[in-house]
Design a protein around this nucleic acid. Structure first.
Lengths: 217, 217
DNA sequence: GGAACGTTTCGGCGCGGGCCGAAGCGTCGG
DNA sequence: CCGACGCTTCGGCCCGCGCCGAAACGTTCC
């Protein structure tokens, strides 16, 4: 069980945890950006990144004088979400700005490569009503056809996964199918990021597309 | 993301991780037993247990002068298995006793409340062939009937879950269905624990029952 | 070439936390 | 009632590690 302790130790530091939290948006960040987010010196950030990469949680991608890092894959994102969900709803955020940011995250956000928050829950409910997924979030045969019409192609990756939402405390759709739907929503302009955060809104075009797909709510 | 760091910190210590590893057998242990397993003084163990309980990972059950502790639920076991799977196969165990114990664990073991190891993988393969589960480990309609004939009753808990096996690196059946099947195997005497460890063997009666259920392998 | 920038390495500081043993408390059994 | 036992609390030790600033390196841009 020492291996478990080693992995846990990587996430047991508030600075490294903050890095991972930022990287949960699925994008690649530079070392300096992460240092600013976590409010530590660049030298400190550099050391932390090296440890996270050696531990297999992050991968790096050097480009010129920049060091881009991102999560090593969906499995890392799932691990992080699971732990965050376990930690549960922490103390309510203080201050107006923090509160509104937190509310925006609760309404809709990306969880690495799929949609979460109230938006994710609504999507799940709609897919359930359409018969695309079961109440256990397994893809039905007809649901697979429906997904393929949206350009989905099965791969090695597990098609569907239940990801526990840490604001709503309800499982929502993750896995390859969840990632594909999220991709569809963004490429069609149905969802848009708020600033550079993980928070997401449904655009007017999105509300229309939502109905066109036969989704309710 | 500080909440994440706090949860991780609970598991980031090798002694506490050893406690959790022992508790993964699903039973309740006393403080002294755990102290011996982790080779620390009783006073040290006591402090660790208090922290794990306050963190919500463990629950206690006092009885006379004993303090029994166990995992707080399946969600904790899932978290632990996920992290262990991520940590991956550590260095091979040294020494004859450690090696044979490790091999026994790889052949078959319980993963909190369901079967894992080669035995768990074989069970999954058999269930897949019977049409009880899909390749994604979702229970099929006919599979639900099959389970009910074995005394399974759906509850609040998620029926099926994929749990990543840390020796085989293959997902196997967890969730309420996995727990029920494990229960059936033990109450019918089809499986037996090796000593007091998590390792499990299929008994001769088990091999026969295995065939009677229509499972291959 | 030179300046600005992103990053890394190193030394040193300070805090947190894991460990133990001693002492104390409640429980159980004779 | 007394001893054995399981557990807890406390004080003290010490190691590990997160942090920073200074210095250095490579890249980019002027």
């Amino acid at each position: 069980m020492e291996a478990l302790a080693q992995v846990a130790a990587l996430l047991a530091d508030k600075t490294r945890a903050a890095f991972c939290g930022a990287l949960l948006d699925g994008r690649a960040w530079t070392a300096t950006e992460l240092a600013q987010v976590a409010r530590v010196a660049p030298s400190t950030a550099s050391e932390h990144l090296t440890r996270l990469i050696e531990g297999g949680l992050l991968v790096e991608h050097r480009q010129g004088r920049h060091r881009y890092v991102s999560l090593a894959g969906p499995h890392v994102a799932e691990l992080l979400e699971m732990m965050t969900a376990f930690a549960g709803p922490g103390p309510s955020p203080r201050g107006l700005r923090a509160t509104s940011a937190s509310e925006a995250m609760a309404r809709g956000r990306t969880c690495y490569d799929h949609l979460a928050g109230k938006l994710g829950i609504a999507l799940k409910a709609g897919l359930l009503e359409l018969g695309v997924v079961t109440s256990e979030l397994a893809i039905t045969p007809s649901g697979l056809v429906w997904l393929k019409e949206l350009g989905f192609e099965p791969s090695q990756r597990q098609v569907s996964r239940a990801c526990l939402d840490w604001t709503e405390r309800v499982p929502h759709l993750a896995g390859a199918a969840g990632a594909h739907l999220c991709d569809v929503f963004f490429t069609r302009g149905w969802t848009k990021r708020i600033g550079t955060t993980r928070a997401v809104v449904l655009t007017p075009a999105g509300e229309q597309g939502w109905r066109e797909l036969g989704l309710s709510g």
